[in-house]
């Protein structure tokens, strides 16, 4: 079932992307379900980006940012976390699983950790009922 999942990952191009590259260079690979959108900073992720990803048919959306104390732009991951939390509340309010949206913070050396967290996220989504917006992505 997991191969049919679609997960959109908004990833900071600094430490977070480095962590993913580090994992891939050591033999791991990203789950097929994950489509990455690189951003200069996760502070660029707006709440509408999270909602529209779900509406577009993604089973889940994950924002992968740097550790909060390591942001090149000072407050990016903090802002992103706040927006993720806000959208979780909105989804809960309109009876959509808030767990479909997650935030992960990683250091550039944490390749193994980010892969583990992504597999856990994928597993959690696979156990949920199908998204009512499934198939919206062409």
């Amino acid at each position: 079932m997991s191969s049919k999942l679609k997960i959109l990952a908004y990833v900071c191009e600094n430490h977070a992307v480095s962590a993913i590259r580090a994992a891939c260079s050591s033999g791991e690979s990203l789950p097929d379900s994950i489509q990455i959108v690189e951003l200069p900073c996760t502070g660029r992720v707006e709440t509408v980006h999270l909602l529209e990803a779900i509406r577009g048919g993604a089973d889940g959306v994950v924002v992968i940012g740097c550790l909060e104390e390591n942001c090149y732009h000072d407050a990016g991951p903090k802002l992103a976390r706040g927006r993720v939390e806000r959208i979780k509340e909105v989804l809960q309010d309109i009876s959509i699983e808030p767990e479909r949206v997650e935030m992960i913070n990683v250091a550039s050396v944490s390749g193994a950790r980010i892969m583990l967290r992504l597999r856990e996220f994928e597993k959690k989504l696979a156990e949920m009922p199908a998204s009512p917006f499934k198939g919206a992505i062409k």
Partner: peptide, 17 residues
């Protein structure tokens, strides 16, 4: 502007579903 987009998107989630 951002809040208008957010609300519209959330309402459209309800409408689509």
């Amino acid at each position: 502007e951002k809040e208008v987009s957010e609300l519209s998107s959330a309402l459209m989630l309800i409408s689509d579903r």
